[in-house]
């Protein structure tokens, strides 16, 4: 098996250009699960964890850039993330347990493109941009256009996920994150919800809602968003928001939960977040 652990992005691109079949390694918390034959039979691997460009949290212009292999523990503890993107800090703290948080990353979550990835609805409501690094240079894709389908992404051959850019959120907007799992830690979500919203002059001025584990991919619930923006910020709208959210998804029965429960939990969580928004109750 070919194996490379480059120390620079340029070196990584050279390796990958020579050998586009190399499997990219981040925290390996998903890749290493499963049959040993699968991982031992890979044609080759390229470890991204040694690339400093991919392991950082820093402001650039008006966006916070988070490297694709930056472990969630670092995101969880970052004062920058906690201050400007509390929903992401919260999501990072709810992934797996301490050990998993020390290894798993946004890049891994995105590349896996599971419907249940805990950070993904947060990226949707934060309107994250994904910076992909390829042989020709970088290109930037909105995250909502990156995750194409069940375990399908817009990552092209010879490309790697470099980092995400999180635009500075609107001043005073509230952020909410809620993961509903079978237990308090080490759980894959039954439903995961993120909301970024704001109220001004007594009306909902911003309302970005996303949910995971309720469809093949994490969804922005645009029908709910359209119905909410401009409404008077009163408690009554919370029921409507929950109801519309439940209508907007097509969850399934599986080993972890039921379609009925997922729809119910989504409705209730959206309702609760919206109530907190109109009452300006921080989570």
């Amino acid at each position: 098996m070919k194996a490379f652990a480059p120390r620079s992005l340029d070196e990584a691109m050279v390796r990958l250009t020579e050998d586009p079949d190399l499997r990219l390694l981040a925290g390996c918390t998903d890749l290493m699960v499963g049959e040993p034959e699968d991982r031992l039979g890979l044609p080759g691997v390229l470890d991204l964890r040694g690339l400093s460009e991919l392991r950082r949290i820093e402001w650039h212009d008006d966006a916070l850039e988070i490297g694709a292999v930056t472990p969630f523990s670092q995101i969880r503890d970052s004062p920058e993330v906690q201050k400007s993107f509390p929903a992401l800090a919260e999501a990072a703290s709810k992934i797996g347990g301490w050990q998993i948080q020390n290894r798993a990353s946004l890049g891994g979550n995105m590349a896996n493109a599971s419907p249940a990835g805990d950070s993904l609805p947060v990226l949707l409501v934060l309107e994250a941009q994904v910076v992909l690094v390829g042989p020709e240079g970088t290109r930037t894709v909105p995250y909502r256009e990156f995750h194409l389908g069940y375990r399908q992404t817009a990552l092209g051959p010879g490309e790697i996920i470099g980092w995400v850019r999180l635009p500075k959120p609107p001043e005073n907007a509230m952020q909410f994150f809620r993961k509903v799992g079978a237990r308090e830690a080490q759980a894959i979500s039954k439903v995961v919800v993120a909301l970024l919203a704001d109220v001004s002059d007594g009306r909902v001025s911003e309302y970005r809602l996303a949910a995971g584990s309720v469809a093949e991919v994490p969804l922005r619930l645009t029908e709910v968003e359209k119905a909410m923006v401009g409404r008077a910020a009163k408690a009554e709208i919370a029921n409507l928001a929950g109801h519309l959210a439940a209508q907007a998804v097509r969850p399934i029965d599986d080993v972890r939960s039921t379609a009925e429960y997922r729809r119910f939990a989504l409705e209730q969580v959206v309702r609760r977040m919206t109530l907190q928004l109109v009452r300006r109750v921080p989570e």
């Binding site: 699960v33 237990r183 830690a185």
Partner: peptide, 26 residues
């Protein structure tokens, strides 16, 4: 919390990721 669902005689909760036991947080 602990549950085994079956489908056509197969356990669906056949790994520790799907057969859920309490963690210290629970």
């Amino acid at each position: 919390m602990e549950e085994v669902k079956l489908e056509a005689g197969h356990y669906l909760n056949d790994r520790l990721a799907t057969y859920i036991i309490p963690t210290i947080k629970d």
